[in-house]
Amino acid sequence: MDLFGGYNPRLSRLVILNKKENLYHFPVVCNQCENAYCMNVCPTKAIKRNADGIVVIDPEKCIACGLCADYCPIKVVCLDPETGKAFKCELCQGKPLCIEACPTKALELVRMDNKGKINE
């Protein structure tokens, strides 16, 4: 809503996968991969890792080729249906809107080290 000005979960930065007649639900968010394929395949170097370790896309440099979305292993790089440019979860400058929107407070932002340990 806040990013596109309207509602459609197909444009959300996280995806809920429903399996086996909705018996299982898996929230899938960008892992900010250490070896980020989206970054590796980008022909214009529009995708970079910032100082906080978050993989971000520069829309100015993005040429809407869609390679990053093709090669994301968990399909969380999406393309804007109007411009064709790529977007992904960049954690909203440290204040994720999804956390704010969740009515049941099911989401929280945590920091993990490279061994998968959560740092409080």
């Binding site: 809503m1 000005g5 509602y7 459609n8 197909r10 444009l11 249906p81």
Partner: peptide, 22 residues
């Protein structure tokens, strides 16, 4: 399958009303 947006006339007030509903 739909890729369009459902728009809102007054997003600020709408969000507040939805939060109250929750």
């Amino acid at each position: 399958k739909g890729s369009k947006l459902v728009n809102i006339h007054d997003p600020g007030e709408f969000k507040k009303a939805c939060q109250d509903a929750v």
